[in-house]
Amino acid sequence: MIDVLYFAWVRERIGVPREKLDTQAATVMDLIAELKAREERYAWAFGDLASLRVALDQELSSFDAPLAGVREVAFFPPMTGG
């Protein structure tokens, strides 16, 4: 089981701030493909990867990163702090 968190408009499109997923996905990209195939709201949220960022266990990462050993995955748009 892996915790998946969504922020900002990604959260709004998917409709929940976080969920626990049972997945065999090897990489972030595999997880995205799995979710997109699952329901339309995921396809909508993950439609444009250029406007998405991913963090693995609270560290900014990349879509080709492996998920082995990862407990928390977060998807969000580019950050707008400051």
């Binding site: 922020f7 969000f76 580019p78 950050m79 707008t80 702090g81």
Partner: peptide, 12 residues
């Protein structure tokens, strides 16, 4: 400031 803008996980 530059890093907070683009690398701190805030969304406005």
């Amino acid at each position: 400031m530059d890093y907070l803008k683009s690398r701190a996980p805030f969304w406005k």
